[in-house]
Design a binder for these strands. Sequence first.
DNA 1: TCATGTTGTCTAGCATCGCTAGGAACATGA
DNA 2: TCATGTTCCTAGCGATGCTAGACAACATGA
Lengths: 194, 194
Amino acid sequence: MSIQTRRERERAERERLIVTAARELAETEGWDAVTTRRLAAEIEYSQPVLYSHFKGKDAIMAAVALEGFAELAAQLRAARADASGVRAGLAAVGEVYTAFARRRPALYDAMFTHTVALPFATTEAPAVLWECFDELSAAVAPVAAPGDEPGILTETYWAGLHGLVTLMRSGRLPEEAHERRLKLLIGHFAAGAD
Amino acid sequence: MSIQTRRERERAERERLIVTAARELAETEGWDAVTTRRLAAEIEYSQPVLYSHFKGKDAIMAAVALEGFAELAAQLRAARADASGVRAGLAAVGEVYTAFARRRPALYDAMFTHTVALPFATTEAPAVLWECFDELSAAVAPVAAPGDEPGILTETYWAGLHGLVTLMRSGRLPEEAHERRLKLLIGHFAAGAD
DNA sequence: TCATGTTGTCTAGCATCGCTAGGAACATGA
DNA sequence: TCATGTTCCTAGCGATGCTAGACAACATGA
């Protein structure tokens, strides 16, 4: 039994090694540089080892994405805790969200643009994913008008943030005016609050 | 001279053949199905012919994207012409924009998510691209508050629309509630108009 | 201690991708 | 009719994600 557990522990450690190596490589050189050969070399094992842990490259990206969701959820929570007032809370999560996307573009891509393997918006979605959404929701719900559905409103605000960062990241919106755009978005969603 | 012009005409025709074949293939089977080999077979020429017209696959996607911009601009213009009132105009372009993205997902991807080869948000951006933005801008500018910059506000509204369609397309937002989300977005940007 | 069977890992290779070099085939003009 | 110049295709390069099958290491029984 002890041998078995040791092996399982070593396997788990190697799995983490794979995920962190993939993440570091993606963050420093972009996801294009994360090839299975390169990743295998990085962890000092051969390619097939990757496939004994993950179904494929997409699954590795999904694992990296999960790390990202956990971190984003924590940052959103902290931002909301520091903010006093409805409008301040809405602004805080918006700023933290877009700052996260700009600081960790590769991570953000894995979470919100690239992978499709993860279930979203269903009860089967991973917990960390719901934590992120719930944090957003906690900041957005207070600005809902009487007839508004809070969940739908949260999705809409999220879409606004997502649109800002993805269009900026692909060079379609100039970086320089980001703060002003974000301020306008927040302003239009917080109208009448506080 | 006549022979020369005939050749140039034939070349231009073949270039259009490439672009339309790429577009049809992308729209029916997705961009993953648009390989250079497949595309060459479709136009009944060999692969290298593609490279005598375009620098690479990205350039072909960019050419397809330009078609999309022209069509989107026309649809936005028509929608705005039919709408009476500031709020109706804002709603009309929002509906047409998202409907376009949902009806032609491959085209939308080429225009707004995939390619980076096209210059955006600079004076060198192609004319059809500016036409799209100007149509949006014409609908958005009237709802700007006294201190708002119309261009920045347009970008923000555009980002909202873009976020809605991309998150929906990747399965991160359920299709079913799209109309309600769009309505909320429009409502928050049109607050106080009309 | 040694044969055995399982477990784990690696080497080698498949199909496919975007892209390109170099030569064959063709139309053109003398 | 024959050289010339253009156009196009065959063949192949270096990658990619992924996998089959050989091989080595190891725990386990006698």
